[in-house]
Design a protein around this nucleic acid. Structure first.
Length: 273
DNA sequence: ACAGGATCCTGGGGGC
DNA sequence: TGCCCCCAGGATCCTG
C-alpha cells in the first residue's frame, strides 16, 4: 500500500516524536515477516539512541548511535506508530520498541509483507540497497539517465514506473496518477517515448508525488501516517480506483486494464496510445 | 539478460 | 447469514 508519499509522511511525523529517544527494549512477535528477525538484533539495538529518521524509496531508516540502523518496509499493510506502552495492542502488532517516557514504537502489519532489519553499520545498509539495485529518488532523477532507462526497456511505461531499480518509491497509485498527469497511455512502450514525452513523465511524477506528500499520502484501506492520521490525497485521485467514472479533464469514462500484473487506470481520451 | 507470472499473507466486499 | 471468489498501496523468486 504505502508508496513514497505515505512513507515520507510516516517518517516526517515520527521524526519529531522519536528522534533523540533511547531504545529501552525491543519485543518481537512469533509470526515471521517477509524477512526473519534475527534473535541477536534486539540486543544490538537496545540502549542506543535514535539519531535520525529518513526515507529511501519506500524504505524507512532509523539511524542509531554507533552508525547502525534499523530499517522498515511497510509492504502492503504495514503501519509504524507510537503508542503509550500501556495502550492495548492492536491485532497484528509484530514489533514493539520501547522508547522510554512510557511510549513505544509499534510495527503493525496484517498481511506480513512488510519487514524490519538491523544493519550494523552504514556500509552494510548501503550494500543492502545496492544488492537490490534500488534506483534513484524520483525528485533527483537525472533527465539523461531517465531517458536512457526508458530507451533501454522493452516494457510498457507502467511497468517501468513500478520498477524500483529504475526509480525508487513509485507504486501502483502514483504510477497511474503520474501517467494521467503526463497524458501518456500506460501501455505505451517505454522505448518509444520521445524526449519531450520522457521529460513530461519525469516532471509529472515529481509533481504528483509532491502534491501527495502535501496531502499526507493516500488512505484507501489500512494506511495511516506516523501520527495515526489518515492521508487526504485519495480525494484528489483522477484515475486510480475510478473505473467507469468521468475523467476530470474530458469526462470520458475512466478505463481499467491489467498491466504488469497490476490493475491500471487511465482516460482513453486524454491518454492516447 | 529480460520480462512476465506466481508467490508470500489476511481481510473486506460483492455476488449468489 | 453464509460461503466463495476476487481484489488489494509490494518485493522477490522462478520460469521460459
Amino acid at each position: 500500500m504505502p508508496e513514497l508519499p505515505e512513507v515520507e509522511t510516516v517518517v516526517r511525523e515520527l521524526r519529531p516524536i522519536i528522534v533523540g529517544r533511547r531504545i529501552a527494549s525491543v519485543r518481537v512477535g512469533k509470526r515471521r515477516l517477509r524477512k526473519r528477525w534475527s534473535a541477536a538484533w534486539g540486543a544490538q539495538i537496545q540502549g542506543r539512541r535514535i539519531e535520525f529518521a529518513r526515507r529511501r524509496g519506500k524504505w524507512i531508516v532509523f539511524d542509531l548511535t554507533g552508525d547502525c540502523s534499523l530499517v522498515f518496509h511497510l509492504g502492503m499493510t504495514g503501519r509504524l506508530t507510537v503508542h503509550p506502552s500501556e495502550e492495548a495492542l492492536a491485532p497484528h502488532t509484530h514489533i514493539r520498541i520501547n522508547v522510554e517516557k512510557g511510549e513505544e514504537l509499534r510495527f503493525n502489519d496484517v498481511r506480513r509483507f512488510g519487514s524490519a532489519a538491523y544493519y550494523a553499520d552504514a556500509v552494510a545498509l548501503e550494500q543492502s540497497f545496492q544488492q537490490s539495485r534500488l534506483g534513484p529518488e524520483p525528485f533527483e532523477l537525472n533527465p539523461r539517465y531517465w531517458r536512457q532507462r526508458l530507451a533501454a526497456s522493452r516494457r510498457c511505461i507502467k511497468a517501468v514506473l513500478l520498477d524500483q531499480t529504475v526509480v525508487a518509491g513509485i507504486g501502483n497509485i502514483y504510477a497511474d496518477e503520474s501517467l494521467f498527469e503526463a497524458g501518456l497511455h500506460p501501455a505505451r512502450l517505454a522505448s518509444e517515448l520521445g524526449k519531450a514525452e520522457a521529460d513530461r513523465l519525469r516532471m509529472a511524477v515529481s509533481k504528483v508525488l509532491r502534491r501527495a506528500i502535501e496531502r499526507r499520502g493516500s488512505s484507501i484501506r489500512n494506511y495511516v501516517g506516523g501520527s495515526g492520521l489518515k492521508g487526504r490525497y485519495q480525494d484528489e485521485f483522477r484515475v486510480y480506483g475510478r473505473p467507469g467514472q468521468a475523467c476530470p479533464r474530458c469526462h470520458a469514462p475512466i478505463e481499467r486494464i491489467r498491466l504488469a500484473g497490476r490493475s491500471t487506470h487511465y482516460c482513453p481520451e486524454c491518454q492516447l496510445v
